[in-house]
């Protein structure tokens, strides 16, 4: 399926002040190693799940194979749902490696810090629509933070990356957790309660326009319930 807007993603569209090409750092997470590599002459991201010595080799192989396959499967389904995410060029479950598009664009987090809020408003709605599409397709991202949302242009949909913790679920609880994580990321980046609330309100607006009013209301209710679970929680 062809996705609207894909391909011109590398254009900076006024965001060049935010994104300066830099030396790509190899990142070693708890689970995988992320490196810049090349495939057929072009730059790609290589994600390799690291072997863990603490579990038996058999089990380690089974898990890394399973998780690699699941990640690719979920990216595929997300694309079908109309969500922009990296193209998978190649995946090898045996070496638990995935080669995918290197999307040269800043994180939403960096954009939030450098762009004034009014200009970002339409983009927040797009983020909400995107997460609505994922949830509607039964996909829970699992790590839906502003570092995993890339901004190719404020006039385009975001590109969602890192489906390493994603899973399929229709549960309201899982959907609410996904969005609650995003709200927390907004809070820590934007600093003030009111601007985070405004931004997240726009996300929910976009979300609601995709999943429908009744679904979004139950998710909103659940988000409130999740907040109450925290110690010394206050929900306004």
């Amino acid at each position: 399926m062809k996705i609207e807007g894909w391909g011109k993603g590398m254009e900076m569209n006024g965001l060049s002040s935010v994104f300066q090409p830099r030396e790509f750092q190899v990142q070693i997470g708890a689970e995988a190693r992320i490196e810049l590599s090349s495939w057929r002459g072009g730059p790609v991201i290589s994600k390799t799940r690291i072997a863990k010595k603490y579990r038996s080799e058999d089990l380690d192989t089974v898990l890394r194979t399973r998780r690699t396959k699941a990640e690719v499967e979920i990216i595929h389904r997300a694309k079908i749902a109309g969500v922009r995410c990296p193209d998978v060029f190649f995946a090898d479950p045996r070496t638990s490696q995935i080669l995918m598009t290197y999307v040269e664009a800043p994180h939403l987090k960096d954009v939030q810090l450098s762009t004034n809020a009014a200009r970002l408003s339409p983009f927040y709605i797009r983020v909400g629509e995107t997460s609505g599409r994922l949830h509607k397709a039964g996909i829970i991202h699992g790590d839906f933070t502003t570092k995993n949302i890339l901004v190719t242009s404020l006039e385009e949909d975001p590109v969602i990356i890192d489906f390493g913790l994603s899973f399929f679920s229709q549960r309201v609880e899982d959907r609410a957790e996904d969005l609650h994580l995003l709200e927390q990321a907004f809070l820590s980046t934007l600093g003030s309660q009111s601007s985070a609330k405004r931004a997240f309100g726009l996300v929910l607006e976009g979300y609601s326009s995709v999943v429908g009013k009744s679904s979004s209301e139950s998710v909103k209710k659940q988000i409130a319930a999740i907040k109450l679970r925290g110690r010394y929680a206050r929900v306004d």
């Binding site: 708890a30 603490y54 579990r55 089990l59």
Partner: peptide, 17 residues
Amino acid sequence: QEIAFSTLAEATDRALA
């Protein structure tokens, strides 16, 4: 045993990190 201990090891690994 292998499965149960491995899940626990993964959780421990992350908690230590």
